[in-house]
Write a protein that binds this DNA or RNA. Structure first.
Lengths: 75, 75
DNA sequence: TATTTTGTGGTCTTTTAAGTCTACAATTAA
DNA sequence: TTAATTGTAGACTTAAAAGACCACAAAATA
């Protein structure tokens, strides 16, 4: 992408990590509940990925929450 | 992506179109309010794109809504 | 102590979103 | 009837996400 969205990615990542730890899931546990590699989830949580819509929904599936909750963070 | 997310993309697209038309914005008008090409927005609305997190936030900016509202649709 | 678990970083290939433009038919407005 | 607007589709390049691995240090557990 043209713009720099690293702050956005970092905020998303922090929020994801919060939601995962809130459920006491390890990266590999969350990974096994959706179609995502654990190392990829790690990268997302560390703000290194501008993930796609489908990936957001996979994460929501794994966390058993509505996808919109994953965007429920302050910028 | 491995899985087929066309239904997801289509539902997102329909919802986006609803939100845009609700505000009486043309594709080019919305386009001018964010850093997105109008033909790209057209493709998103027609379910042809698995858009990225940054693009969701650009659309939210253009529509002047919270990004999570863009994921507030039924699957 | 020995052993699993955990998070992370790297590699490599394939796929595709992003970005930028052009063109055009169908509406809509002047 | 012109002229402008609107939605859409296509071409093309570049950057990067996805996907599937492997390896390892540190931390937790047995």
């Amino acid at each position: 992408m043209k713009g720099n969205y690293s702050i956005l990615q970092q905020n998303f990542g922090k929020h994801l990590r919060f939601l995962r730890e809130e459920r006491s899931l390890s990266l590999r546990e969350l990974s096994s509940r959706c179609e995502l590699d654990s190392s990829k989830i790690s990268k997302i949580e560390n703000g290194k990925t501008n993930l796609q819509l489908s990936t957001i929904f996979e994460l929501a599936k794994g966390l058993e929450i509505e996808a919109k909750k994953l965007l429920d963070f302050k910028m």
